[in-house]
Design a protein around this nucleic acid. Sequence first.
DNA 1: CCTTGTGAAAGGGTTCACAGCA
DNA 2: TGCTGTGAACCCTTTCACAAGG
Lengths: 259, 259
Amino acid sequence: MQNYGHPSEVTSGRDSAAGIPEATVARLPVYLRALYALAERGVSTVASEELAIAAGVNSAKLRKDLSHLGSYGIRGVGYDVDYLVYQVSRTLGLTQDWPVVIVGAGNLGRALANYGGFVSRGFTISAMLDCDPAIVGSRIARLTVRHVDELEAVVARYKVAIGVIATPAGSAQAVCDRLVAAGVTSVLNFAPLVLSVPEGVDVRKVDLSIELQILAFHAQRRSASRPGSAGARRSRGLGSRPANGAARPRVLPELAAKA
Amino acid sequence: MQNYGHPSEVTSGRDSAAGIPEATVARLPVYLRALYALAERGVSTVASEELAIAAGVNSAKLRKDLSHLGSYGIRGVGYDVDYLVYQVSRTLGLTQDWPVVIVGAGNLGRALANYGGFVSRGFTISAMLDCDPAIVGSRIARLTVRHVDELEAVVARYKVAIGVIATPAGSAQAVCDRLVAAGVTSVLNFAPLVLSVPEGVDVRKVDLSIELQILAFHAQRRSASRPGSAGARRSRGLGSRPANGAARPRVLPELAAKA
DNA sequence: CCTTGTGAAAGGGTTCACAGCA
DNA sequence: TGCTGTGAACCCTTTCACAAGG
């Protein structure tokens, strides 16, 4: 139930300045989505148990999480949906509008730009940037892709506070450096590498291959305990080495035996 | 430094059956990537301190993590890069090859299919499925997109153990149900909703808007403490309500005053 | 001498169970 | 009566500091 393996690097891991635990902050968006769904169904009041089920958490956790925002429930009744939507939104800073720049207009960048939920509530894409002349000038989700050379101008012009990196790994650090130099202090990184940033810059990482690898670990455990079930096939032994010459580890026999 | 807010739901949160803590499992892929990078640079031995920096963690944590796999280091020297690559790969189950099916061949599905690192090591895309006749039959990353009706046949034929859901939210639960019924026990979900699955099925979630909202929270904290800095503009007040009629919460004045 | 591997301590997060209140 | 809000217990994770050992 805990959320490990997260595609992100949080600077501190400590309580936020507002005194709200990180783990709670990470769940608020989930609650918010569940609350919107309830509101759209016309539900005006919800008990912690029901909201917890909709959000996929346990109700005690939900109540403790919400208690960090204030006492917004009514004992014996539950929570007012609209009011809670507002309080959670306000806590997350979504009563403001956040200008976002997406760097990289390949498939991923396009997917992000077209992802309705991404932009709808609280976020506006100020610009999409790319360096490929074949892509610059094309239109994506009502935006014309601009050249990455305009990065600094765009950040300044729209007061962009959040940058999304959807470039290949090779260009990600350079893009990140430029974003930071231009004044961006929040970065969402989709490139598969660890970005280094100065103190005070908040980086979250979304890494598809890491997620798959974590799934593989658990799948392996399952198929090991249930032999013959639908696990992976085609064992590759030691074959999956990098393009490095020596594949055989120089290692003591005792260590190898432990394996 | 802890990884909260993760786009995933882990079934238990307890130690895996192999006795490796979840938090460790979640970091192993990061170490693996750093090790591959070292190997490609021709480095044959690495100390915990150096590897920890490359992976963006502290060295005590790295050593404790690796100690769960066994005693693979050499005191006074460090770790053999190739050997450690192998041990971490084996632990994660990457010495097998995992057939994956991607459902949804829109921009996101295409981005996933073309994402080199995604597929390269340990994972093979068995098929891409979609229900849009305009997309079915097109070729993406050397694969011909097949109709989603073939889902069950594909899962059986290729012994698919991992399903990736890259569909709109509206179809995600139905797709998930079909994957699970067909025998898939690991699901990577990109659709913005909480999937319900039977016991024993492992779901991880990647949710772009949740990541953005977490960034917004921290950005808000920063701009609140440094007034006048480049935070968000254009406050929207209470405007961001769902298409629900009553936007005004019926709430006691005392509660509102607390806000 | 240098670095690993690990007890022990410290810090959060989750869960339980119930007091408190509408 | 029913549900929220929360102290306390429990559990996991991180970090420290050093013993062990090549």
